[in-house]
C-alpha cells in the first residue's frame, strides 16, 4: 500500500528529495564529481584522436626531416637531414607528372561525379513509385570495398576480353579494342571514369538532401511567373543549392586527393607511371622503396594541399551556420 509520503510516479520528481537541497559542500563535491565523470566520458575518444590522428601528422613531419629507411628499424638511427627529403621528392622526375595527374584525376573525377550526381538528384526529386527504393539501391557502389570495385572494373576494362570493349565494338563505336588500362595515354582516363562511378552515390545523396531543403512554394511561385524547367533550375534551384554545392565540391576534392585503393587496384600507378599521383608516390616511396622520409615528404605535400581545401570548407561551413 502506498503511503502519503511517497507519491512518486515513475520518472517523476520526488518532492522529498527536491525539497531538501544538499548542503553547499556536498553540492560542490557533487559538481566536481560531475566534471570528473565528464572527463572520463571524453578521455578515451580524446586519447584515440591524439594517438591515431595527431601523432601520425606530427610523426610525418618529423620523418620527412629524417633519413628514415629500413635501416632505421634495425639500428634505431634516423639522422636529421633537413629538407633533403623534400628536395629528393620535388627533384624526382616523377614529381611533375604526379602533381599533374593528381590535378587531372581530382578535377576530372569531381566534374563527372558532380554533373551526374546533380542530374540524378534532380531526377529523384520528382516523386514516383519506387523512387526511394531506387535511390537507396544507388548507394551500393559507395558501400562496396574499393578494392572489389577495382577488381570488377579491371575485368570490365580488359583490353581483349573485357565487356566494355566488346560492347563498344558490338554497337560499332570502335573498330579496335581500346587499351583502357595498358596504354599510358588512356589509363588516367579509365581510372577517372571508375572513380566517377564510385563517387556518384555520395554526390546524389548530399545534393538530393540539399534539393529537399528548397521549399516547394518557391517553385509554385516561380511557375506562376513562367519559370519552369531550365528556367526554374537556374533561377530557383541553383541559387538555393549553392551552399550545399560548395560543401560537396570541397569535400569531394579533399576525399579525391587521398584516393589510393582505386589506383593501386586498377593500375598500381602504371603503365609507365601514367597514373602516379601524390598519394601513390607517398605509398610507393614508403612501402615499396622503403624510403619513409621521402614518402613522408610526399604525404606532407598532400596534406598541405588538402589543408588549403579544408580551410575553404570550414569557412563555407561557418558561413552556412551563421546564415
Amino acid at each position: 500500500m502506498p503511503t502519503l509520503e511517497t507519491p512518486v510516479a515513475p520518472g517523476g520528481v520526488s518532492p522529498a528529495r527536491a525539497a531538501a537541497p544538499p548542503a553547499r559542500g556536498a553540492r560542490r563535491r557533487r559538481a566536481s564529481r560531475e566534471r570528473l565523470v565528464q572527463a572520463l566520458f571524453l578521455a578515451p575518444a580524446g586519447l584515440y584522436l591524439v594517438l591515431f590522428f595527431g601523432y601520425p601528422v606530427v610523426k610525418n613531419v618529423l620523418m620527412s626531416l629524417q633519413e628514415y629507411t629500413t635501416r632505421t628499424f634495425f639500428t634505431g638511427e634516423a639522422p636529421w637531414v633537413g629538407l633533403a627529403n623534400y628536395a629528393t621528392a620535388i627533384g624526382s622526375n616523377l614529381f611533375g607528372p604526379a602533381m599533374l595527374n593528381t590535378a587531372l584525376f581530382t578535377v576530372g573525377s569531381i566534374a563527372g561525379q558532380f554533373a551526374i550526381g546533380l542530374a540524378l538528384a534532380s531526377f529523384f526529386r520528382k516523386r514516383f513509385p519506387l523512387s526511394g527504393f531506387l535511390r537507396s539501391m544507388l548507394l551500393l557502389p559507395w558501400l562496396l570495398p574499393l578494392i572489389v570495385s577495382s577488381a570488377t572494373w579491371r575485368s570490365i576494362l580488359d583490353q581483349d576480353s573485357g565487356v566494355l570493349n566488346g560492347f563498344l565494338r558490338g554497337v560499332g563505336l570502335i573498330s579496335e579494342p581500346i587499351p583502357w588500362l595498358t596504354s599510358p595515354s588512356v589509363a588516367l582516363i579509365a581510372v577517372v571514369l571508375v572513380n566517377i562511378w564510385v563517387g556518384i552515390p555520395f554526390n546524389v545523396t548530399i545534393l538530393y538532401g540539399g534539393l529537399q531543403e528548397i521549399p516547394e512554394e518557391l517553385y509554385e511561385a516561380g511557375a506562376m511567373d513562367g519559370a519552369t524547367g531550365w528556367k526554374a533550375f537556374w533561377h530557383i534551384t541553383w541559387p538555393n543549392l549553392r551552399p550545399v554545392v560548395s560543401v560537396v565540391l570541397v569535400l569531394g576534392v579533399v576525399y579525391t586527393l587521398k584516393v589510393l585503393d582505386i589506383i593501386l587496384g586498377l593500375t598500381n600507378g602504371g603503365p609507365a607511371n601514367a597514373t602516379q599521383t601524390l598519394a601513390v608516390r607517398s605509398y610507393q616511396e614508403s612501402f615499396v622503396n622503403f624510403q619513409f622520409g621521402v614518402g613522408a615528404a610526399f604525404s606532407n605535400i598532400l596534406i598541405l594541399i588538402s589543408l588549403v581545401f579544408a580551410v575553404v570548407y570550414l569557412r563555407l561551413n561557418r558561413r552556412a551556420v551563421d546564415e
Binding site: K59, M63, Y68, K258, A279, S282, F287, F292, I303
Partner: peptide, 14 residues
C-alpha cells in the same frame, strides 16, 4: 580529411 597514407606511414613505424 587526413589522408590514410599519412596515418599508415606513422603507424608502421610505431
Amino acid at each position: 580529411m587526413i589522408p590514410g597514407i599519412v596515418i599508415a606511414n606513422a603507424l608502421y613505424a610505431a
